[in-house]
Amino acid sequence: MKKTLTCIECPLGCEIEVTMNGDEIVSIVGNGCLRGKAYAENEVTCPKRVVTSTVRAENGALVPVKTDAPVKKSEMFEIMQKINAVKVKLPVKIGDILLENISDGANLIATGNEE
């Protein structure tokens, strides 16, 4: 069976064709780089995404956040619920862990500085 994917690793958006035999990957064609190969391998077995959002600081300001590793696409909405329950104390610096192990070992980290 063949699956056609659009790679999301970079703006080029390579079209990748993955040939499968059951659960086994037979070939990956069309990727422009190794990141694309890894993306395609994940995408046909367990698709993952980095989730980005915001959390509230005590003073009402919003702090931008992301998962520091891709998390299961199928769990994005559960992860969003966890993110929306987070309240942070200021100051926050880029890279600060705001919630440990939000999913599969990935942490929720700040992507903005807020005084």
Binding site: E9, C10, P11, V50, T52, S53, T54, P64, V65, K66, I94, T111, G112, N113
Partner: peptide
């Protein structure tokens, strides 16, 4: 960039996928 909190910035320049605020910082 401050309101572009999604990732994907900086792949060409920093070889990393940054959010807008991270790129700006």
């Amino acid at each position: 960039l401050n309101q572009c909190i999604h990732n994907g910035f900086g792949l060409t320049r920093f070889k990393e996928s940054l959010s807008g605020p991270e790129y700006a910082a």
